[in-house]
Amino acid sequence: MLGSVLLGFLVRRAIITVVLLVGVTLVSFLLIQAVPGDTMSATLSEQALQDPEIVAAYRERWGLDQPLYVQYLVYMRNLLQGDLGVSQQTGRPVLDDLLTYVPATLELALPAMVLSLVIGVAVGLYAAVKHDRLGDHAVRAGTLVGLSTPPFWLALVVLYVFFFLLGVSPSGGRLSTWIVPPEQVTGSVVLDAALEGRWDVAWDAVQHTALPILVLTVLTVAMLVRFVRSAMLEVLDADYVRAARAKGLPGSRVLTAHVLRAGMVPVITVSGLAFASLLSGTVLVEQIFSWPGVGQYAYRSATALDLPAVLGVSLFVAVVYTAVNLVVDLAYGLIDPRIRLS
């Protein structure tokens, strides 16, 4: 019975996702049209723009001479065949572009998320337990500083300290310039180097990830801690936690088995959103660390009015959000039997 419920849930979700994705393409498509200027002026040189022949050839090459709805339908037809089009700016298929930029972003987002969850839950729970005492106040001050720190400023400061002053960290990029990058298999330089057995290269790549991960983690932790704290405070007051204490269970067991379990539901929602926003790219941080991630790709495509690339990124972000939401909903069911069994 549980299986059929789950199946129905997944089918409903799949239908909603398809509708959503169509909507996303439509909106992005129209929005791009609404922006004054076009991709030609962003891509072609001043001189080329003067030449009507080049302009006509360019318009024909990219299908810009067709009416708008034809352009959209052609795009959708290709999309159904898994063809995201060719970026007008890079001249490469958008799918190939995404396949190089997304893993770079993942390489930062995944470790940052795992670290944030571990630190955020631990610190948030600590603050809740120390409610209104010194520890709690200290944590609150810390998160306030973290939340009000602009990401780009923090990125610059850690670069200044760890690269310029201490010299313990590289300045940016994914690898030191004198190293020949490993062949792309997973797209993560760290993993690819490790797969080739080039441990020194993998270590170099890890060092390059350290600072951007640090910055992303600080920002995510600051937000998570506040959520975890308030979620856990509510649970700590619950009768079933008093009951667990009344049973004479050790404090650590009460916290892990009883308090954390119940407090995780709202935390999972927020973590999902945080992870999705990390995945859809953090332009400023990527910019400062010269990190070729989705954020940079999105930014460059948008400023160049590169329609296929913008649509590709929009679709990617939409897929990320729906996928993360799906995982979050499944996690609810896993944690809370009242959701699973009803």
Partner: peptide, 9 residues
């Protein structure tokens, strides 16, 4: 209802 943990068997 309140004193039993809703998520533990």
């Amino acid at each position: 209802t309140a004193s039993l943990h809703p998520m533990l068997t």
